[in-house]
Amino acid sequence: MHRLYRLIDEDPRFHALQRSRSRFAWSLVALVLTGYYSFVSVIAFAPALFARALYEGTTISIGLLAALAVLLLSIGLTGLYIVRANRVFDRLNRTIVDDARSRFEHR
């Protein structure tokens, strides 16, 4: 293993960061996939559910609203990820790398 990489790998903060980041990313993946699989499953198995009108007297169907919701959910979660990644993960990441660099140079 490259020495600088090993220094980072030995840093417990690196593993803590990596764990919290991956927990966050995978929860978002689960949310998105749940949204999409439910959307496609309703179309595949229970299309009548999407066929109903949203409320009495409108042509807008539940399906149209669901399609809109899935799109907005995707954009929203993508935004949520970038906010957390840029504000929290990037800063921690920089600290860890800078520390490892200075230890690397002092050896």
Binding site: V32, G35, F39, G63, L64, A67, L71, T78, Y81
Partner: peptide
């Protein structure tokens, strides 16, 4: 009609996946 919308909505799911799993 509605079925056409499936082709706008479903491919879009690739974007959040790319962001969470691949971009960095």
């Amino acid at each position: 009609g509605f079925d056409g919308l499936i082709y706008s909505v479903v491919p879009f799911g690739a974007w959040p996946l790319m962001m969470f799993l691949m971009a960095d």
